[in-house]
Nucleic acid binder design. Structure first.
Lengths: 210, 210
DNA sequence: TTAATTAATGACTAATAGTCAGAAAATAAC
DNA sequence: GTTATTTTCTGACTATTAGTCATTAATTAA
């Protein structure tokens, strides 16, 4: 009798529904401004019900950001299989990230916020940790591209590939953060975001060249 | 008659007193957990008085973080005048930052948070902006060191020095953030924080070498 | 000494995250 | 088909706390 299974599926559906409603509310009003009542109304459920599926507003927020993160990752999945060398792929991934940040600035900010916070407070087992890091974040892809680059003798082999990959990803996030938070400064320096990004690629790729 | 001046000084003193009290409370309980009543009690003032000096909890928070930021900067002031070449100075500044982050992890986190947020929401005039960026953040020092490096022909001249400097500083913050938020991951990769930092210096300085 | 100005207070309001006893709906038992 | 049991949902309620403001106290000027 598949009743339990169906209920399980329905539960998951409700959860998704709530996440969708919360995403809508969070990104239209901002996290702080959004109340659980707003989200409940958007989801056409009562507030109490939200707490059956998420233990707190913060918990719901994390689910939303995870969802956004996996969307960014999805937008990059194609790049790994292109017929390009490692450097070209890394630049393509960078450009995809920039494009995402331009199209969905708030979503990008939330991803960066997640990357800054999550692991310090939550405690995962080692195996769960792998999932968390590699499921939503694009860093898993970057690692494989760096490994490809080491094989191609394009990227230096004296530093472990995963470390290079994480460094690249952090640096990518930091330049996106810079452009989005310091745009006034960039104008003041008589630069454009494009110049900042291009210099970033130039500096960073020069650093990892073998 | 210097009454107005004395009063002005006393006002400033009160403000400092409140900032000190708030710093104590914020860093012992965390920002979210700290209530304005806690801070008022620590400052031996009533809550209403806090609002005579700061327009909101967030405003007070920003003042506290600015103070912490200028302390980090102060700990670096000496380096600029050492008898070292630009690369050595940059590494020294990096190490000073790491040391600060190890000694005062919460304070460092708050600085990183400030660097992510501030400018997007507040609106300064161009001249004020310069102050905000260069008064508390160590980036002003980094710019001068990079300029020295360009003169010494150690650092590439094809990218504007301020842009290189900002990139370096962002990257420094991002590696500190990485080490502090992803320590479990670093262990998983069988690495140590020291290795992560050393690779960072190696990659980054290699990138800017002329 | 009195008037006027400035600073400080803390009881009060408004907003909202999270709870929980009871209602409603779905499922199982007979 | 009816009743009992389990699951899901509800929204009124509580607790907390940021921020306000009428009142009081202290300081300065007249």
């Amino acid at each position: 009798m598949g009743v339990a299974e169906r209920k399980e599926r329905e539960k998951q559906k409700r959860k998704e529904l709530i996440i969708r409603a919360a995403e809508k509310v969070f990104f239209s009003q901002g996290f702080e401004r959004s109340t659980m009542d707003d989200i409940a109304e958007e989801a056409e459920l009562s507030k109490g019900t939200l707490y059956l599926y998420f233990k707190s507003k913060e918990d719901l927020h994390i689910s939303v950001v995870h969802k956004v993160g996996s969307r960014l990752k999805a937008s990059m999945m194609g790049i790994e299989n292109l017929d390009e060398d490692a450097f070209e792929k890394l630049v393509s991934m960078g450009r995809a990230t920039i494009e995402f940040a331009n199209k969905f600035p708030d979503q990008m900010k939330s991803i960066m916020l997640l990357e800054s916070f999550e692991l310090q407070q939550t405690s995962y087992s080692t195996s769960q940790l792998k999932d968390v890091i590699f499921k939503d974040s694009p860093v898993g892809i970057v690692i494989r591209i760096v490994e490809q680059g080491v094989k191609e003798k394009l990227i230096r082999a004296d530093i472990p590939a995963p470390l290079i990959a994480h460094t690249l990803w952090m640096q990518m996030l930091s330049v996106v953060r810079f452009v989005s938070t310091k745009s006034t400064l960039i104008k003041m320096l008589e630069l454009t975001p494009v110049q900042v990004y291009e210099s970033h690629f130039e500096l960073v790729l020069n650093g990892i060249r073998s």
